[in-house]
Design a protein around this nucleic acid. Structure first.
Lengths: 343, 343
DNA sequence: TTGTATGCGTTATCAG
DNA sequence: CTGATAACGCATACAA
């Protein structure tokens, strides 16, 4: 087992000092060409690489980004993560992931752990429990300690920091308007019971679209499903008892379940009812019919978040006390597929 | 902005030496109860936490695990990652993820980066390109440098290390046998063109089941689809021209596409044809009919991989030169749903 | 009971 | 041109 070689060992082997080796490898012009050549050759031969830990300690920056997300087995978060990882990697950063599992406690614990020197800054989407408890002291804490923070998707108004969000209201408006344009008159909304901004915003966009197009809003046409453990019977009852010719679902699972139910009852999609979902995942692409859905461009969100964080990190050196936080909006787009009547 | 406090600062404030502080916080009995009290109180007040980087440098261990996977926007890898992260977190390790994106070059690059001190050991599944090139020198390299390595799923026989795999052959056998037990006589296989062990092993299990149950193997009943960019027409042609009453698909996407195609042609699932897929993801759960599928228990695989790696890491201290590598097999299970006729 | 010195691997400053 | 020294934050063997 050949352990990694260090400056010290090279110095010893070559009979020079550590600093000579260090400078040579940095191609400093304090050192004679001759010595540099020799050192470089030796270093190359033994495949010398500076030790990241030592560099981190010295430079007080790890070149690591901490990502804290509620869930990783979830298409949206996964795509965002992909974007973060991609951008970070291209810019010489590594990514440390912690999954809060929607738990406040784990979120706090993980962030404290990471804040003890493992990372230079955070990108995160807060857990459901955290939103519910409405306690964000851990976020404030890390910011006070000087860690740049970028929030995405599940964002906290109360916290002043960089943010990346989606135009949920707007795209829900567009989706609803599209169905109205198809001639739909009774448009339902299938949403989730929760304290999430996003669901609320989508509902707002839905209502605004109805209103602005002179379609009556009927609250009975809104089906609220639990956050976890959706029983198909809820949906069956809804399909059974309500009369609608269009549905906006806040995720693709609800949309696919709903399509299955309507079709089982002989109601055709999209002839009899249009369906639009959120999240452009596998379900949307491979359902029958394929699902018209809102693509959230998670990867782009991730890249943007990473870009914002890294910019802060790189600029921290030198400048410092100007608090200019941005909120970037990644525009979602409607992908028209088989569950709506497209022009 | 209050930066994190260090031992040195505490020492200065309290007018004692750094080592006194260090020992006090470790509750060493070299130190008087009185001093310990004082130091602890102060440390608590200022929320002292040892700096991970400094600890890493000193202890020569980072308590970080490097995970290198081909893709993260992929249900199986995501679940495995979840398992790794979970176990690692419970045992005080953080996880650094690098996505190779199925590229040999990125894989090598990332591993070299991580090997420069960022992590203590690797858990990985090799990229497609790496398998294709058949070049594993980067794996040997890190092992020679003393990094424990655990491979999962896409495993390399040539590399001696801990491994976690699935009983692909066996479960494919079982799945095929199940369809035979249903009375199916002409069972097709939809697989992927590739150098992946897993596809091959699944094909082997399929063939063995046919053979052992006296069903003729007809190579025309095997449809080989490209790794990426599957055209639905391939499947349509296959359904059109071949005659089968059961299908084993090596992933859930193929299975769902196939079900959609057959159903469009008026062939009923499961009445006319049984379908079984691999990967128990969203598609399997929400397709119509729901898909009988092989659950790979990725999370379990991840936990096992992390367990094996961490065990190696913790035991490295002291013992050393006993090379006892294990290969753990995580048993997949068949989840019976609506696409087969279940007893 | 407390403190000093050393080392982990690197870089930067300053002397030689 | 080269090298010794300090510093990053911590732990520990060894003095006092």
């Amino acid at each position: 087992m050949k352990r990694k070689i260090t400056l010290k060992q090279i110095a010893r082997e070559l009979g020079v000092s550590i600093s000579t080796v260090s400078k040579s490898l940095k191609d400093s012009d304090e050192i004679s060409t001759d010595t540099k050549q020799k050192v470089k050759a030796f270093a190359k031969l033994y495949n010398y690489r500076p030790n990241n830990i030592a560099l981190s300690l010295k430079n007080r920056r790890t070149k690591n980004i901490g990502v804290v997300i509620p869930d990783i087995v979830h298409h949206f978060f996964t795509t965002v993560f992909r974007g973060i990882e991609k951008y970070a990697n291209q810019h010489g950063y590594n990514v440390v992931v912690c999954v809060s599992d929607e738990s406040y406690e784990k979120e706090v614990f993980n962030m404290e752990l990471l804040a003890n020197g493992s990372i230079d800054g955070f990108i995160m989407s807060v857990s459901a429990e955290t939103q519910q408890k409405n306690d964000f002291s851990h976020l404030k804490e890390v910011m006070e300690q000087g860690f740049p923070l970028v929030l995405f998707d599940r964002v906290i108004d109360e916290i002043e920091c960089d943010k990346v969000i989606m135009n949920d209201e707007e795209i829900a408006y567009q989706a609803t308007a599209k169905m109205i344009a198809e001639g739909r008159k009774k448009i339902a909304l299938v949403t989730t019971e929760s304290y999430f901004n996003v669901s609320e915003k989508r509902a707002e966009g839905y209502k605004r679209a109805l209103k602005e197009h002179g379609v009556d809003y009927d609250e009975k046409l809104t089906l609220v499903l639990p956050f976890k453990g959706v029983e198909e019977s809820y949906i069956e009852d809804f399909v059974e008892n309500k009369n609608f010719d269009g549905v906006l679902c806040v995720n693709e699972i609800f949309a696919v379940l709903l399509m299955a139910t309507t079709q089982k009852k002989g109601i055709r999609v999209p002839e009899d009812v249009s369906v639009i979902g959120f999240t452009d995942g596998l379900l949307s692409r491979y359902s029958s019919p394929t699902l018209t859905t809102v693509a959230q461009h998670g990867e782009k969100m991730g890249e943007m978040a990473a870009e914002m964080l890294i910019e802060k990190l790189e600029n921290e050196i030198g400048f410092h006390e100007e608090e200019d936080y941005r909120t970037e909006i990644i525009k979602a787009t409607l992908i028209e597929r088989g569950s709506t009547i497209n022009t």
